[in-house]
Amino acid sequence: MDGLTAFGLLAVTAMLLCYALENRSHLFILCFAGACLLGSAYGFLQGAWPFGVVEAIWAGVAFRRWWSARNRSARAP
């Protein structure tokens, strides 16, 4: 396994774990957004730019979800 493949495996594994743990804390949503950015970087580095674009969009969606969840928990009594 070369370094790029290991990086991709790490990114996708982090995405899976963070997605599974999202209900425990809004910080896992932020970690999921970061893992999506890693997945996007992997896509571009391996030459699969459509994968890189889609993962970058998912990172934006996840960041927005984190922002909303953070604000909701700050307002909760």
Rank of each mutant, 00 (worst) to 15 (best):
V12D: 08
W49P: 02
L27G: 00
L27F: 10
A48D: 14
A6C: 04
S73P: 00
D2E: 10
A11F: 07
R65H: 10
W58K: 12
A62N: 09
A56H: 06
L37I: 09
M15S: 09
S73V: 11
A14D: 15
G52R: 02
E55A: 14
V54H: 06
A11R: 05
P77E: 12
P50Y: 06
R64D: 03
P50C: 11
I57Q: 00
D2L: 00
A62Y: 05
S25I: 03
L27V: 07
F44I: 01
W66T: 01
L4M: 14
W58S: 08
F7S: 11
R24I: 07
A41S: 10
G43Y: 03
R75F: 01
F7I: 06
A11I: 07
A56E: 04
V61N: 01
E22H: 03
E55T: 05
L4K: 10
I57Y: 04
A33M: 05
G60K: 03
S25A: 12
I57T: 01
L38N: 08
M1D: 03
M1F: 05
G47V: 03
I57F: 10
V61Q: 03
G43E: 06
L27H: 11
W67C: 02
M1W: 03
Y19W: 11
L38P: 00
I57C: 05
P50E: 06
W58L: 14
G52P: 03
A74R: 15
L17E: 13
W49A: 12
T13P: 00
A56V: 00
M1V: 07
V53Y: 11
L30A: 11
F7Q: 14
F28S: 03
A33V: 04
A76P: 00
A74Q: 13
A35C: 05
W66N: 09
L45Y: 08
C31G: 11
F51M: 09
L38M: 14
W49I: 09
Y42V: 01
G3M: 08
A62Q: 10
V12K: 12
W67I: 05
E22C: 13
L21C: 10
T5L: 12
V61C: 06
S68C: 06
R70S: 10
W67M: 09
G3D: 14
I29L: 08
Y19G: 15
N23I: 01
R72D: 13
S68K: 15
M1A: 08
Q46W: 00
W66I: 01
L9C: 03
F32A: 06
N71G: 04
R64M: 10
G47E: 06
Q46C: 08
A14G: 04
L21R: 13
A41P: 00
F28D: 02
